[in-house]
C-alpha cells in the first residue's frame, strides 16, 4: 500500500499536469460533496424530476473543469453553486407553493381504480397496458385483479393497494391476450388454445370487435380480466379445456 502511494506521488511530482488534475479533482470533489450534503437527503433517495435534472447537470459540470485544465476551476464551481441556488429556490417552491409544486414536480397518477384501468391516465403518462403489467409484477402483483388501486408517484415510482387475500388468488401468472385492441399471438400460443376461444369469450360479453378491448388477460385457472375502452372492468371465470393449465 505504502509503495503504491510512493509511486503515485512520485508520478505526480514528475508530471505536473497529472498533479493539477489531481488537485482540481480534490477541489471539485469537496465542493460537490458539500453541495450534495447541503441539498439534503431527498437528493440521494427517490428523485423528483427537478432533482434528477440537477443530478445529471452536476455530474457533467463537475467533470469538464476537473479534466480540462484550460478551463479555470472557478467556472465549474460557479456553475455548481448556481445549480445549488436554483435547487434551493425550487425546493422552497416545492414546499410552500402547491400550484407551482405540481407544475414542477407533477402529480401522482391513479392508473388503476375500482372501475379498472384508467386509460386516460396511462396515455397521459405515455404508458401502455404492458408497462402497467410490468410495474405491477415489479411491485409483487401478478394480476390486474389483485389490486384495488395503483398509482405512479410524481417521482416515477409505482405504488399499489392490494385487495384483501390477493395472495391466495395469485396461483397462476395471467397472460395478456389483448393489449390495446390487438391480440398477442405469442401469448395465445402459450395458452395452447385457438383464437376462436377468445373470440367466443368476447361474443358472450357482447363485444363484437377485439379492437374495442383495452385489455384481456387469462390465467391458468380460467380467470379472465376484461376491460373495454371507456368501460368498467369485468372479472369472470371460464372453463378451460382439459389439460390446459400454466
Amino acid at each position: 500500500m505504502g509503495l503504491l502511494f510512493c509511486i503515485f506521488f512520485s508520478s505526480l511530482a514528475k508530471d505536473k499536469r497529472m498533479a493539477l488534475i489531481f488537485i482540481r479533482t480534490v477541489i471539485i470533489y469537496v465542493t460537490l460533496l458539500l453541495i450534495m450534503r447541503l441539498m439534503g437527503k431527498r437528493q440521494i433517495g427517490e428523485m423528483q424530476p427537478f432533482e434528477f435534472v440537477i443530478t445529471l447537470l452536476i455530474a457533467e459540470l463537475a467533470c469538464i473543469p476537473m479534466a480540462d485544465i484550460s478551463i479555470p476551476l472557478l467556472y465549474g464551481i460557479v456553475a455548481i453553486v448556481s445549480i445549488y441556488l436554483l435547487h434551493q429556490i425550487v425546493c422552497l417552491i416545492d414546499l410552500y407553493c402547491k400550484p407551482l409544486k405540481y407544475l414542477i414536480s407533477g402529480k401522482p397518477s391513479v392508473v388503476i381504480n375500482r372501475n379498472g384501468i384508467d386509460e386516460y391516465q396511462l396515455k397521459k403518462n405515455s404508458l401502455d397496458v404492458s408497462d402497467l403489467m410490468e410495474s405491477l409484477r415489479t411491485a409483487g402483483y401478478f394480476s390486474l385483479s389483485s389490486v384495488e388501486y395503483a398509482l405512479y408517484e410524481a417521482s416515477g415510482s409505482f405504488s399499489a393497494l392490494p385487495k384483501a387475500g390477493y395472495e391466495e388468488e395469485q396461483t397462476s401468472v395471467p397472460l395478456v391476450i389483448i393489449d390495446g385492441g390487438e391480440y398477442d399471438e405469442k401469448n395465445i400460443k402459450l395458452t395452447g388454445m385457438p383464437l376462436s376461444f377468445f373470440e367466443n369469450v368476447l361474443k358472450k360479453q357482447g363485444i363484437k370487435k377485439h379492437k374495442k378491448v383495452l385489455v384481456l388477460t387469462l390465467d391458468g385457472t380460467g380467470k379472465i380480466y376484461l376491460q373495454e375502452y371507456g368501460k368498467k372492468r369485468v372479472i369472470f371465470n371460464v372453463q378451460l379445456p382439459e389439460g390446459v393449465a400454466w
Partner: peptide, 16 residues
C-alpha cells in the same frame, strides 16, 4: 425555511 433562505442569500451574494 430560514436555513434555506440564508443559504440562498449566501449563494446569490457569492455569485453576484
Amino acid at each position: 425555511m430560514v436555513k434555506t433562505l440564508i443559504s440562498i442569500l449566501i449563494a446569490l451574494g457569492l455569485l453576484i
